[in-house]
Design a protein around this nucleic acid. Structure first.
Lengths: 235, 235
DNA sequence: TCAGCAAGGTGGTCGGACCACTACGGCTCA
DNA sequence: TGAGCCGTAGTGGTCCGACCACCTTGCTGA
């Protein structure tokens, strides 16, 4: 009947688009289980191998989730699911693009911090303080980094924009931060970092969005500028 | 020798990580050609099927590129390559997350427009004008949308941050814009949109970053607010 | 000299087989 | 009667081998 498929692109690519379309059109709900690989392959008229490649593709994109022995399910399609791949960008970027990524982070982080200043709850604020004190109480770089990440994660979460938080999560992925900070902190930037974190915290307590925005921008900007000089050596 | 692999996770997942690591460590340069699927499978000690799934995964992530009959190549690993998946997020998002995405776009677009005001060249400015006039010269929604997209694309490109431009590209993907704007423009928002675009253009000509920032933020904010009311019906 | 052709190599697809794991039901035993 | 064990059917995960579609290369022949 409708077998006039013009056969554009590869079979697998077509299967990817079809499943994606099914989800976009609402024919597949978040959390819903899909037919088996074998059935899906028959339905779309392709081999199981090709269907598996399509499923793999949608799996790495965070759209599908395959559970061994159970079945294939649509994820909740939340920001975290779909933006997990963002970390790959950060991990594979080098040189000038690291600066660009930090610039993006500066813009988003400052906005998120400003939003958080207006919206953060007492509980969230307490958690921010917990990580702040824990960060200042140790000299282990690993531990500092972990609390540093958590510090910003809580703030991003308090901003109330899950999508923004998920992007920031990717821009702060462990390997990314570790690569950049390795050199930065070696220059004795610990003290400066602590001051900056304290300033961010003060602005949150004061519920002052503009101060929070400025503090966060300065915080990321410091690293950004340092990295800029590391790369170019220009003025 | 080192065959003590603890066999964590699936075979395919391991292969993905290994190839990714090879690129991150610089053992594979951008543009370089990889061994054949068959050879790679042998090297990593897995079947060709599993290797193909791994390659497919890295292909959708924009890390690898398979050319039929020629071979598998590492992409240039530029922002555009790696952030292409960002469009998927926009296409599969609904309801509240659409607002979140527009909020992110508002923040980035306003920043990019401000940067562009300071850096845009005469040629780029001419192109902006071209799309602006073309946009105002037609009533075909399709054509308007196309020039609208191009308008912002040129500006984002002039900002000098390819990463930011690539993210904005994803946040403005054709299907995304089409979905949101379908309703928005039906309410006779064409005139308003034209005024806003004109304001952005004026700020660029005046090379006034703050005005450009404000104009861009207002432009996206309009759509954002409209969408907010469409969803919640709240005040 | 160069256009055209032929062969080899490469990714793309297919089908089938088997393995590893999960979920579910019936069975056993207290 | 109830809980726990266990087997089995079904699912995704892996492997193999074959063939197809396409590109590249180099040779052929005018």
């Amino acid at each position: 009947m409708d077998e006039t498929a013009p056969q554009k692109g590869t079979v697998t690519q077509r299967a990817i688009e079809q499943i994606k379309a099914m989800i976009a059109e609402g024919r597949l709900e978040p959390g819903q289980r899909l037919p088996t690989e074998r059935d899906l392959a028959v339905q779309l008229g392709i081999s199981r191998s090709s269907m598996r490649e399509a499923i793999r593709a949608l799996t790495v994109l965070g759209v599908l989730e395959a559970r061994h022995g159970s079945g294939i399910y649509v994820t909740q399609l939340e920001a975290g699911d779909l933006l997990e791949t963002f970390g790959v960008v950060a991990d594979l970027s080098r040189g000038p693009r690291l600066v660009e990524l930090l610039e993006v982070r500066r813009v988003l982080e400052s906005t998120a911090t400003a939003l958080a200043a207006a919206r953060i709850t007492a509980d969230q604020l307490a958690e921010v303080e917990k990580h702040l004190t824990a960060m200042n109480a140790t000299d282990d770089p690993e531990e500092i980094l972990a609390h540093d990440l958590a510090f910003h994660r809580v703030i991003a979460g308090a901003a109330g924009n899950d999508t923004m938080a998920a992007i920031l999560e990717g821009l702060s992925s462990r390997t990314f931060r570790a690569r950049v900070w390795r050199g930065y902190e070696e220059e004795g930037a610990f003290a400066r970092t602590r001051r900056e974190h304290a300033a961010i915290h003060r602005a949150l307590v004061a519920r002052d969005p503009e101060a929070a925005r400025a503090a966060a921008a300065a915080h990321v900007g410091e690293v950004e500028q340092w990295l800029r000089t590391q790369l170019g050596g220009q003025t």
